[in-house]
């Protein structure tokens, strides 16, 4: 038997109410139910970081949280933050520095990077690497990603 629960949450500024299976992950809910397919599904056990979204202002793994747990929460995805221009500087830097190839990891990578820009302090490359250590990229070798984040966070090339 499939157990289901009613939830109401705010996704990218819009209030939504749905009945969801108890076992459904937040990222599956966002993708399948709301059509927000920018958050990607990679490993489904919290290793790759492709599904990173923001819940109540903090980044989390979309595959390690159930949709039902997001009841009453505020969820922001790559779509919402992109439309709100919050990611503009990072997106531009990623583009200019070739910090992506296939793009699969990019939404999650941007969510993690944005989190770092909110600290409002200069960071070392080592700190950037530690902060994105939970996000896998299989194309770039990370160098260009660290360059792009460093440029935006520290305001330098």
């Amino acid at each position: 038997m499939e157990h289901a629960n009613d939830i109401t949450l705010t996704v990218n500024g819009t209030r939504v109410s749905r009945r969801v299976p108890a076992r459904q992950h937040l990222v599956d809910f966002l993708r399948d139910e709301l059509g927000l397919t920018g958050s990607h599904i990679g490993c489904e056990h919290g290793v790759c970081g492709a599904c990173t979204v923001r819940v109540n202002g903090e980044i989390v793994r979309g595959c390690l949280m159930l949709a039902v747990q997001a009841d009453g929460c505020t969820v922001d995805t790559i779509e919402g933050l992109s439309d709100a221009k919050e990611l503009e500087a990072l997106q531009k830097a990623f583009h200019e520095r070739n910090a992506l190839q296939c793009g699969f990891c990019t939404p999650g990578m941007l969510m993690a990077a944005l989190d770092l820009t909110k600290k409002n302090t200069k960071v070392t490359r080592e700190e950037i690497r530690a902060h994105i250590s939970g996000n896998y990229c299989r194309c770039t070798g990370y160098q260009a990603i660290v360059d792009a984040i460093e440029e935006v966070v520290n305001g330098q090339g």
Binding site: G49, A112, G134
Partner: peptide, 12 residues
Amino acid sequence: VTHIAHPAIRNR
């Protein structure tokens, strides 16, 4: 605590 997984996991 800094050795425990990654920021997105430490948040939960």
